[in-house]
Write a protein that binds this DNA or RNA. Structure first.
Length: 140
DNA sequence: GCCAACGTTGGC
DNA sequence: GCCAACGTTGGC
């Protein structure tokens, strides 16, 4: 299957992986950055994304799947911000920490590392595979 | 259009 | 709590 891969960030104090699991499907709202918005808009149904805890934890904790493509963000007060709906696929058997990612030469080009402030970033298929390996994730 | 000031994000 | 990166705002 051809799908694209992403990584989305959330501060667990605001919205955590546990909440994602409880809610199952959740609109990914609140993106107010044009580049992140571009990435959201490029997501297709069936694409998968790592769920990353920023600030507290700083690790990849799970995998979500896009179940609804970009539509106007209801939490946006104005204009053209968008969100997508994502569904919890499963937790990382072993969370992959930012420290581990930074320690891996193979992941030096990862957008998470290169553009640390961007909350929605693309992940290449190669990087996806590496990170899955590190986290013990088996594609399902 | 340039650039300084300022705010926000997020790692450390 | 500090600071780097970077986006936004506003004066000129």
């Amino acid at each position: 299957m051809s799908r694209n891969y992403w990584l989305v960030k959330s501060e667990p104090d605001a919205f955590s992986w546990d909440e994602q699991v409880v809610n199952d499907v959740e609109p990914w709202t609140g993106v107010r950055n044009h580049q992140a918005k571009k990435n959201l808009a490029a997501m297709k149904k069936g694409d998968r994304a790592f769920f990353y805890h920023s600030n507290v934890g700083r690790e990849i904790v799970g995998v979500v799947e896009v179940v609804k493509e970009a539509y106007p963000d209801p939490s946006a007060e104005s204009e053209s911000w968008v969100c997508v709906d994502v569904k919890a696929v499963g937790p990382m058997p072993r969370p992959v920490t930012l420290a581990e990612i930074k320690a891996s030469p193979d992941l030096a080009e990862l957008a998470l590392v290169r553009q640390s402030r961007l909350s929605v970033v693309p992940v290449s298929e190669e990087h996806w595979g590496i990170l899955c390996g590190m986290g013990g994730w088996v594609e399902k």
